[in-house]
Design a protein around this nucleic acid. Structure first.
Length: 936
DNA sequence: ACATCCCGCCACTGC
DNA sequence: GCAGTGGCGGGATGT
């Protein structure tokens, strides 16, 4: 609340504008004028020297080389000037006085700028007028005025957010320092953070090049991916748990789980830069790296909220050794520095998280979540876009600018990361998913958007599948994971709420064919459609083609996956989210808080998102925001409210649910919480989910809010601990309302052994799954896997029958077909996210949670199908009851993901992984994310 | 009392 | 040797 910090506000308001490009210079000029810049010239900075400062203030000559400088303008006259002499005398006489004056001076610039700029108020207050120095006392700018955040805003104001390519400007640190009236040291802090995001790059000594935000989304995307690889999410979860007293041992976890994480240099860039060991060490601690890591934490976080203490712990490589407190404190100090800059950039805002222990300072990511589409940016991702032409990026504009980022130069080149990342990106981009993401992103926002999303998802999925087909292999699993085909898939499932269309059928699964045609319906999909389907393979798919009929209008969608089928009622019918809710909720919740928040739709998203979570998630959460300028967002968001991120118990979810993505996304922190393991009783959460009727999906919508909420939700979750569990994410069905709309069929697993889904398990799951209610089904053709049997039956019996009855013809299905329905309990709760199901793998059966996964493998049917998945099955991690143990935590990477069949390519391998992993991990989400990152 | 975080010392680095 | 960088943490300021 309050928190939202003044500074933030201040910063924000003024600055955002900053973001805007243009003005800057103008502003500056104005400011300067105001200020009096004049005087200084100096390039050399005197870093410390006080004296200079005074001079400096005024000066501003060109601040930016590029940018127009006002140079001159400033007449020397300072307002102060008049008193200058006097001051001098005074200062001479009294050091104190001197200091004051200096300070004043320093501030002034700032103040002036602010005033001019935009900042209205805040700053000035204190200040006296310039000239006035009268009272020195007053003058002294308060600390706030001197804050790094404000300073950063001023700094940003000088440059256009999206400079024309030609326009790149160079930044002379000395000039800037002097113009802003601060020591160079301060500028370094700002520049280092900006550099970490590739907004600037170092060209030469004392010279930086301003790139603007063109490549920001790309950079964020890269960071997200890297973060996923590093498993920051898990780490966060771990720490959270730890705090919660959960017991795990991190060490183990860490090692196991995050092996890489800390080890690798974040962005690679350090390497480049550093030559010597010492250098490296130093660099490792650099603000740049810390900044990147910090950002990664947000990006991988489902909740998008990161508490300082957790961030500090994670950033302390050592890990938690208890490390000295001092070290911790130092880290926190640094994080504040970084946070101030990020706040000025409109990427985060301060919030407080209430935990059991009390309120903790935290920051919430309010920047773009989806990178591709990044809101602000004009989108640089061209590549991605390109990849998916079809997709429309909706709103997204594509500018393609190339990324600036690129490493331009220098030392840091900072972003080497980028490069690597890019690779990744590309992959992604190329991958179906990405596109999806983008789109999604675009959509974010409205409910419709949700439905659209769904459609998209379906489409995407299809695409993915196609792609997969094409490449299958190619895609590396990892990639897939990353991509998240799963994501897509999930969507497909959705029924959508509202739209009539929904039905997405789109699910391409190979198996099912849901008719692409249907897809067409999908609004979004359209473009996609083209791609569509094609699923790979599976004979089924072909069949599908034929089949499309299946769903075409029908309300349901069937997923053939081998493992699971989902049916969704048509929207019309119940599906509306409401129906789904159950599922959805489950999902959402299950995911724990994270996801949980999601509403049905959200849920969907979440699924999709996973990784992207950030992206998409964001969207949901911030959808609008994204589009909006940061500043606005901020304002909106500011609401902050106490977030709870995590843990807190709030009940939650409520509102936010929307988060969906977020949920997935966010969670992180809590994640721990999430961990639900199936095993765990989880019941709680699960229960909620399952049992609950779900709230109306509604929530989903609110993406925006979601943000916040989610956190809360999460918190709850977390607190809950994860227990949660399962929630089937898979289904995305919409939730709500009842399942009636849906029918799920589960096949029995066939193999009992398999996955654990055994029937028994299923039941436990609760959820979900199986339900088939409906009569509705009857009409519909459902598909059942042959296998189905028991389990289903278990399910609501009634329903099943029908369902079963129903037609289903799906020949395609594989025999096995165990279907899963959504929920999979197995899946694990957390996971809800996403998982996509991969079709591929036979196993897939969902990849449910890891556990499942393992087991699943068994399950897997051949038919990969699964797909549809909206359901994602995520891997759940840990199904196990155990909450996260460290082990559980392990990373699972990819595995989890549902891969597409293609991706499966190595199903086996995949399975293996899963197997191993399966449990682990805490949240599904992570997996998702991770997977996305894939990698490895 | 605790949260923030400014400030500037000083080590490192590269020229 | 010097200037540029930037880690670091004392301690002031804000709440």
């Amino acid at each position: 609340m309050e928190i939202s910090c003044l500074t933030l506000k201040d910063l924000i308001s003024p600055r955002h504008t900053g973001i805007d490009l243009a003005d800057e210079d103008g502003e500056n000029a104005q400011k300067e004028n105001i200020f009096e810049q004049s005087r200084m010239t100096p390039k050399t900075p005197m870093k410390n020297e006080p004296i200079d400062l005074s001079k400096q203030k005024g000066y501003t000559p060109e601040r930016n080389p590029i940018t127009p400088v006002k140079l001159v303008d400033r007449p020397l006259t300072d307002p102060w000037t008049p008193t200058a002499n006097l001051k001098m005398l005074i200062s001479a006489a009294s050091p104190d006085m001197r200091d004051r004056e200096k300070k004043k001076e320093l501030f002034r610039p700032i103040e002036n700028s602010e005033q001019n700029d935009t900042f209205p108020d805040s700053v000035q207050d204190d200040m006296v007028d310039d000239g006035t120095m009268d009272e020195f006392e007053k003058q002294r700018p308060s600390r706030k005025q001197k804050s790094l955040g404000l300073l950063c805003q001023k700094f940003l104001a000088r440059y256009p957010s999206y400079p024309l390519s030609a326009e790149k400007s160079t930044i002379s640190l000395d000039e800037v320092a002097s113009s802003l009236g601060v020591e160079r040291r301060r500028i370094y802090d700002i520049v280092n953070v900006l550099e970490s995001l590739n907004l600037v790059s170092r060209v030469a000594k004392n010279q930086y090049c301003w790139h603007g935000r063109h490549s920001l989304s790309q950079t964020l995307k890269n960071l997200q991916e890297i973060g996923a690889l590093q498993k920051y999410e898990e780490q966060m979860a771990y720490f959270q748990h730890k705090e919660q007293d959960l017991e795990y041992k991190f060490g183990e976890c860490k090692k196991e789980t995050f092996p890489d994480s800390q080890e690798r240099p974040l962005l690679e860039f350090s390497e480049a830069d550093c030559h010597s060991a010492s250098a490296n060490s130093r660099k490792d601690k650099s603000l740049r790296i810390m900044s990147q890591k910090f950002v990664m934490l947000f990006l991988v976080s489902k909740t998008k909220i990161v508490t300082l203490d957790i961030a500090a712990k994670i950033l302390i490589e050592e890990s938690q050794d208890a490390a000295d407190h001092s070290k911790f404190k130092t880290k926190v100090r640094r994080l504040y520095d970084i946070a101030n800059v990020l706040t000025s950039l409109g990427l985060i805002k301060k919030v407080h998280v209430t935990e059991e222990r009390g309120r903790k300072p935290a920051f919430k990511w309010i920047g773009p979540v989806e990178f591709n589409g990044n809101s602000d940016e004009p989108r640089t991702d061209a590549p991605t876009c390109a990849a998916l032409p079809e997709l429309k990026r909706g709103a997204c504009v594509q500018h393609q600018t190339h990324v600036n980022g690129k490493q331009r130069l220098s030392r840091h080149s900072s972003f080497n990361t980028v490069q690597p990342c890019e690779g990744i990106k590309r992959k992604f981009s190329s991958e179906p998913n990405s596109p999806h993401r983008e789109r999604q992103a675009c959509f974010v926002g409205s409910d419709e958007y949700c439905s659209k999303m769904i459609n998209l998802a379906a489409v995407c999925r299809q695409k993915m599948e196609k792609d997969a087909e094409s490449k299958n292999c190619a895609t590396e699993t990892s990639l897939h994971s990353s991509r998240n085909p799963a994501l897509i898939s999930p969507f497909s499932v959705l029924p959508d709420s509202g739209d009539s269309d929904y039905c997405l059928n789109p699910i391409p699964h190979p198996v099912f064919p849901i008719a692409h045609s249907d897809m067409s319906h999908l609004s979004l999909s359209n473009g996609v459609n083209s791609q569509v389907l094609q699923t790979p393979t599976l004979a089924v798919s072909k069949i599908e083609n034929g089949k499309p009929a299946l769903l075409p209008n029908q309300p349901f969608v069937c997923f053939p996956s081998a493992s699971v089928f989902m049916l969704c009622g048509s929207p019309q019918e119940h599906l509306s989210r409401e129906n789904l809710p159950n599922v959805g909720e489950k999902c959402n919740r299950s995911p724990k808080g994270q996801a949980s928040p999601l509403k049905p739709q959200a849920a969907v998203f979440s699924v999709n998102c996973h990784k992207r979570s950030s992206q998409k998630c964001a969207s949901p959460s911030t959808p609008a925001a994204s589009s909006e300028p940061v500043a606005k967002r901020k304002t909106l968001e500011q609401s902050d409210a106490p977030l709870s991120l995590v843990l807190p118990k709030k009940p939650i979810e409520s509102p936010d649910v929307a988060y969906p993505l977020g949920s997935s996304c966010a969670s992180n922190v809590h994640l721990g919480a999430f961990h639900l393991d199936l095993g765990t009783p989880a019941g709680e959460t699960a229960e909620e989910d399952t049992t609950k009727p779900l709230e109306p999906p509604q929530e989903k919508q609110s993406p925006n809010r979601d943000h916040e909420d989610p956190s809360q939700g999460k918190e709850h979750i977390s607190q809950e601990n994860n227990q949660q569990t399962f929630f089937p994410q898979y289904l995305y069905v919409q939730p709500a309302a009842g399942l009636s709309g849906f029918n799920f069929l589960f096949s029995a697993n066939q193999i009992p052994g398999a996955v654990g889904l055994s029937a028994s398990q299923l039941p436990s799951l609760s959820v979900p799954c199986v339900v088939v209610p409906s009569t509705a089904l009857a009409p519909l053709p459902l598909i059942c896997s042959p296998a189905i049997t028991g389990p289903l039956s278990s399910a609501p019996a009634g329903s099943l029958p029908n369902a079963a009855a129903t037609n289903i013809s799906m020949p395609t299905f594989t025999s096995t077909t165990p279907v899963f329905i959504g929920t999979t309990a197995m899946v694990t709760p957390k996971t809800s996210k996403i998982p996509s199901v991969d079709s591929q793998q036979p196993s897939s059966a969902v990849h449910l949670s890891p556990v499942l996964g393992k087991s699943c493998s068994m399950v897997k049917l051949e038919s990969p199908v699964c797909t549809g998945h909206p359901v994602t099955l995520l891997k759940l991690q840990q199904p196990s009851s155990t909450p996260l143990t460290p082990k559980s935590i392990r990373p699972t990477h990819h595995e989890a993901f549902f891969k597409t069949p293609s991706s499966l390519g190595d199903p086996i391998a995949w399975k293996k992984k899963e197997g191993n992993q399966t449990r682990n991990t805490s949240s599904v989400q992570r997996r998702l994310e991770i997977s996305s990152s894939g990698t490895d």
